[in-house]
Write a protein that binds this DNA or RNA. Structure first.
Length: 559
RNA sequence: GCCCCGGUAGCUCAGUGGAUAGAGCAUCUGUCUUCUAAACAGAGGGUCGUGGGUUCGAAUCCCACCUGGGGCACCA
């Protein structure tokens, strides 16, 4: 449990004050609109502000500024709030007490690594399913965006008090896998000098040949001697396992880890597939037509129906996905599920939501976040990321070239809905100059101050925080205090991309403080302020570490 | 043709109903005898794709159009 957010407390005080104004007869309302409290962009407008009077002015036909005054007078200063002001055209601005801000330095120090935790989720179970690239090849740059987004979102949800499971759905069944198996076998046979061809729509990538060579080295030519069907089965298993472990390693190398790797095939062996189809059939959501089995999603408002079982008797990917979502939402009782998909799956969203509804589940328990495409560039050259053809630019290649922190930061800083340009040159440059290192450098500077203080044997445990009165000090404290609020907000709207922007602002505030406020001073008369500032530095260190960790970035003490 | 997502500073992007539209890069000007100059302070740079509309108030909401990407399979 963590303390209620200040922003919510202020919201409540506005609610009380407007009620008081109603009792007074100043304003009369049937319904009170939602009270919005925000952080004003301009610091002259205080620490928090509400636009409630502006929003009420039409219904009440009262001048918004007068309304602001009428409400504001019912908000009295306390330990936290220094004063409130009605400001034109009709805002109520809140100014925090300096003594309260100062006290938060000790609060942060006491919270330690828990600072930033909030109770938005109240222990609710949520799954974030992401990446889930078919185990037919390595993870490429396009997938990296979803990987970074998903892992950061999971971190944020965890900090916000959700019980989070990070899952990778392994599509180890179906047609694409057969193609993959055949491709591997063909390359293997070719390595042994046999006439063999990659099937039409098979996998042409160079990595298949490498894979075949590896298998040959370890397993010898034994697959040549067995019946084709058996060879396909055995070599396929080995190939798939190798690909999955490559995917696992590559993702792990950029700090993306999963709690669970869920096999599509397990949905069939467990009997859940049959159960689900039977259920949908009973509910009349299925119909047979043209020799195939259809899901009647038009009934639920979609553009068209979708095939569940093909004429050939094979089930479709969509069928497995329905079963999988039933598994997540019913069998495993996740209260909500977030799926992160690429833009090429965008058309799949409405039918998936309909399927969830058909299963008798509130469709809002499933949220699908769509990541737009990534264009990879090197300066002027646009690099094509082709899927089956060949030249994949893999996650590993990009991570090796630009570094994992720059890679994560660059992907994370953009909202998933934007089609982004990933310019290798630019990202490398950014990692050397800004803003990735800008943030890490702030942390490193922080750390070196503490180190110096320790070397000099300074004891700051009794530092007097009321000495922290410089504007740079107070602004830094304000910035530190925004983290819990941000975690709450990001967890609610599922947008971790605010994290890098916050980190940059935080670093800006820190560098400013560093410039203006000497911490470790050799001057005897400065012992008191040094101790106080060391407490602030310690608090800042905590917040930087937490912020970088939420982003999945490294936290260097020295640069 | 229909559906989804974009178009904000020279470039890459934040900002989705409020107070003078922001950051980084790039350009220009200052600042290192003192905890890391990978930094700080400052300057220039904007018809927020276009045109209508709603509103006290629009980059943000609605409509139309222009433009870029993605999707409209018994593929995944």
């Amino acid at each position: 449990m963590s303390a209620p957010l200040l922003i919510n407390t202020i919201q409540e005080s506005v609610a009380y004050a407007s009620e008081a104004a109603q009792h007074e007869g100043v304003l009369q309302l049937d319904t009170m609109p939602e009270i919005q409290v925000e952080r004003p962009g301009n610091s002259e407008h205080g620490d928090f502000a509400t636009n409630l009077p502006l929003r009420l002015s039409r219904a009440t036909r009262i001048n918004p500024l007068e309304l602001a005054q009428a409400i504001a007078k019912h908000i009295s200063p306390n330990d936290v709030i220094d004063h409130v002001e009605a400001a034109p055209p009709g805002f109520i601005n809140f100014y925090l007490k300096q003594s309260w801000l100062q006290k938060q330095v000790d609060v942060i120090r006491q919270s330690g690594s828990k600072f930033g935790d909030v109770d938005t989720g109240q222990g609710r179970k949520v799954m974030v399913e992401f990446v889930s690239v078919n185990p037919t090849g390595p993870v490429h740059v396009g997938h990296t965006r979803g990987a970074v987004l998903g892992s950061a979102l999971a971190n944020v949800l965890e900090a916000a008090g959700f019980e989070v499971t990070r899952e990778y759905y392994v599509n180890d069944a179906g047609n694409q896998m057969q193609m993959f198996y055949k491709s591997v076998l063909a390359r293997y046979q070719q390595e042994l000098g046999q006439e063999a061809e990659i099937p039409e729509n098979g996998y042409m990538g160079e990595y298949i040949t490498e894979l075949a060579k590896d298998i040959l080295n370890v397993e010898g030519d034994r697959f040549l001697k067995m019946a084709e069907e058996q060879a396909l089965l055995e070599i396929g298993d080995i190939g798939r396992e190798k690909i999955v472990s490559t995917i696992k390693d590559d993702l792990s190398s950029i700090g993306v880890e999963f709690d669970n790797w869920f096999s599509e095939r397990s949905l069939f062996s467990s009997g859940e597939y049959e159960e689900t189809i039977d259920f949908l059939r009973e509910k009349d959501y299925l119909s047979e037509r043209d020799g195939a089995l259809w899901f009647n999603s038009v009934m639920l408002g979609d553009d068209k129906d979708n095939v569940i079982v093909k004429t050939s008797g094979e089930s479709t990917y969509f069928a497995s996905d329905i079963v999988y979502h039933r598994n997540k939402l019913i069998k495993r009782k996740f209260e909500s599920v977030v799926d992160i998909w690429g833009a090429d799956h965008q058309g799949h969203v409405p039918r998936m939501k309909s399927a969830v509804e058909a299963l008798g589940i509130d469709r809002d328990r499933l949220t699908v976040l769509i990541c737009q495409m990534v264009t990879l560039r090197r300066g002027q050259d646009v690099m094509r990321v082709s899927k089956r053809g060949g030249n994949l630019i893999t996650l590993r290649e990009v991570a090796d070239e630009v570094g994992i922190d720059a890679c994560r930061y660059s992907f994370l800083a953009k909202a998933p809905s934007t089609q982004m340009e990933f310019d290798l040159e630019m990202v490398k440059k950014e990692s050397n100059e800004n803003p990735v290192f800008y943030v890490q450098y702030a942390h490193a500077r922080n750390a070196s101050i503490i180190e110096l203080a320790r070397e000099r044997g300074i004891d700051w445990s009794n530092g007097d925080i009321s000495l922290l009165t410089h504007p740079s000090e107070l602004d830094l404290i304000r910035a530190l205090l925004r983290l819990p609020e941000l975690v709450d907000e990001m967890a609610t709207i599922l947008e971790p991309h605010h994290l890098p922007h916050y980190a940059t602002e935080l670093a800006n505030n820190f560098h400013n403080f560093y410039e203006n406020c000497r911490v470790v001073s050799s001057n005897e008369s400065d012992t008191a302020i040094t101790a106080a500032r060391l407490k602030l530095v310690e608090a800042a260190l905590i917040v930087f570490r937490r912020t970088l960790t939420l982003m999945g970035m490294t936290v260097p003490n020295r640069m």
